[in-house]
Design a protein around this nucleic acid. Structure first.
Lengths: 140, 140
DNA sequence: GTCTAATAGTTGCTATAACAACAAAATAAC
DNA sequence: GTTATTTTGTTGTTATAGCAACTATTAGAC
């Protein structure tokens, strides 16, 4: 029986949790969770996306996006508007508070990425992506 | 502003989800979730571990271990016994059903690991672990 | 032996993830 | 125009994750 430490998927999972917990602690003072922040980052880049677009861009389930967007609205960072041309869809717009948040949070996210990659060369990052991509495609 | 696809942490997270979802679908017919299966795998290796030991070996929060163990007990795969020498602790033992499950599930888990690593050399796996380890240590 | 500090497990809470089912709106087919 | 199909977002459910708070038990200090 293969020992657990031989499962590379477990190792990847633990790494993911470690990275996520770090950025989680850095975003907590802003009332933002890591995944919520991904939505904010999309909106800081392009305001007014509908929920479906957000789900597609983030490769996430629309259910989860809807819930996260709802929570962000509750926090006052965004508000949702029924689409003009399609009354089924909801467009998501930043509030003033949400816009201002970007000035503080974007530098934190970028610093996080630099820290993750510290001491790792560009070639190593490319190799990492190549291997992980191969693993994902092995799942098809 | 750095585009989202430049964040290696997001890429790792998505890979983790892809791998996890695959094994999740393979374990579903056995009423087992991936993380629950890790507990089972420990017990198939060594029956009678207490919850704290399981949490330590899996590097997981004891709260979550307690909940997962509870669910496995509800499913009839394990039962918990108060420790003889320490009445605070609960030792986790496989039921007959839980033991038999291993015959079917262990091969699936090992096949999963082989599939994940298909077309990836041992050297590449070592490199992957080295880079991910560096990233995790960057978080300290 | 008595009192204090630490420990094992539980309850509570918030967040993400994925799938099913459903209603309303839009699109496609005829 | 009418009907069938597809799409967008919501509700429900189950699972993992992490932190706080708490209780009962054990270990350590004196």
């Amino acid at each position: 029986m293969l020992p657990l430490q031989e499962y590379i998927s477990i190792f990847i999972h633990q790494t993911d949790l470690t990275l996520t917990n770090y950025i989680k602690s850095k975003l907590a003072p802003f009332q933002l969770a890591p995944e919520q922040n991904l939505i904010m980052m999309l909106l800081w880049e392009k305001d007014g996306l509908n929920q479906n677009e957000i789900a597609e861009k983030l490769k996430k389930d629309k259910t989860n996006i809807a819930r996260m967007v709802y929570n962000l609205e509750q926090k006052g960072f965004i508000h949702r508007v029924v689409g003009e041309h399609d009354r089924r869809s909801l467009r998501v717009f930043l509030t003033d508070e949400g816009k201002k948040l970007g000035e503080q949070v974007i530098p934190i996210a970028e610093e996080f990425n630099r820290l993750v990659c510290k001491g790792i060369t560009e070639e190593e990052l490319i190799e990492l992506r190549r291997i992980l991509t191969k693993m994902s495609s092995n799942m098809e």
